[in-house]
Simulated assay, not measured.
Amino acid sequence: MKLIGSLASPFVRKVRVVLAEKKLDYDYELESVWDAGTQIHLSNPLGKVPCLIMDDGTPMIDSRVIVEYLDTLTPVCKLLPPQSRDRASVKCWEALADGVLDAAVLVRLEHTLRPAEQQSAAWIARQMNKVHAGLAAMSADLGELPFCKGNQYTLADVAVGCALGWIQFRFPEIDWPEDYPNLARLYAKLSERQSFKDTVPQ
């Protein structure tokens, strides 16, 4: 398999963490989707990473689709429960974490791609409200549990860890570790895993 991605994308990081946890071999091809000469559209018509090229050359797109597929390839470190209710709960955690990232990415793009005089303060505020509401919801749902779903490390933790890491990377002014000590404890624990150490955004 070959993964097309970047070193900064939290969605690519999520896939890389899962690949590492599942101990799956793959080639990694760096691609900057913002470069004029990007070729990502040849594999993903949406022009986005991550994109997983499977052994037969078929592309698979969207991080949520990719990680769910990867979890089926080996019983090593199962990240998604087989039961429908528990599985849906883990996927809801992932959707919440990804939603926080979607909003934060929109704010970053507004700041970096638009001249200051064209930026919409109302749009930025709307997206940042989603980020802060999402962080508060993650903290409330985590409570004092060791992991998002209790005692077991799952895809929920991977998704939340990647979201927290990217916000810390791109929005250091958001002091979520101070506001949500339980999320800070979870992130510190996740950061000790080799899969997270090897995929720090840059």
Score class of each variant (00 low, 15 high):
L135V: 04
Y26R: 05
S43G: 04
L101I: 14
G5Q: 06
H132A: 07
C77H: 13
L155V: 01
W176P: 00
Q168N: 13
P50H: 14
P146D: 13
R126E: 12
G47V: 05
P146C: 10
R108D: 11
P82E: 15
I167C: 08
L164G: 02
G150A: 06
S191Y: 00
R114P: 06
I40F: 05
S9C: 10
I174G: 03
D55H: 06
A125I: 06
A163I: 01
V100N: 05
I61K: 10
A163F: 01
P75A: 13
D35E: 15
I4D: 04
L186S: 10
E31F: 04
H111F: 08
W93E: 07
I53V: 15
N44C: 05
L113I: 08
N151R: 04
P45Q: 06
S9K: 07
C77P: 04
R13T: 02
V18E: 06
Q118A: 14
K14L: 04
Y26S: 00
S9Q: 12
C92N: 15
A103M: 12
S195W: 05
A103I: 10
W93Y: 08
A137T: 02
F171E: 05
K130W: 05
S63H: 12
E110C: 07
K78E: 15
G165Q: 11
Y180H: 15
E94M: 15
K149C: 14
V67T: 14
Y153I: 02
D179F: 03
A133I: 00
D27F: 02
L46R: 12
I124H: 04
I61Q: 09
L30T: 03
A121E: 09
E29L: 11
K189R: 13
H132Q: 13
Q39R: 14
L113C: 08
E31H: 00
L73D: 10
K48Q: 13
I4N: 00
G5S: 04
L113F: 13
R16A: 08
R85A: 15
L3K: 02
G143K: 11
V160K: 09
L183Y: 03
N151M: 07
D98V: 12
L113V: 09
Q39D: 09
S6Q: 07
E117I: 13
C162D: 12
Y180P: 02
G5W: 11
D62S: 01
H111V: 09
V160I: 05
N151I: 04
A184E: 08
F11L: 10
Y28F: 15
F171V: 06
G150M: 10
G57T: 10
P45M: 01
A156F: 13
L96K: 03
R13D: 02
F147G: 04
R13Q: 09
D62Q: 14
L46V: 03
A159D: 01
V65F: 14
S63T: 09
W166P: 02
E117F: 11
V200H: 04
P201C: 07
D86H: 14
D35N: 11
A184Q: 10
G37F: 14
L155S: 06
Y26G: 03
K23Y: 02
L96F: 06
S84I: 15
P146L: 09
D35F: 05
A125K: 10
W176Q: 00
T74W: 12
Q152C: 03
G99M: 09
L142Y: 06
Y180T: 03
V160M: 03
I4Q: 05
Y69K: 12
A20T: 04
H132F: 13
I61R: 14
W93C: 06
D157C: 05
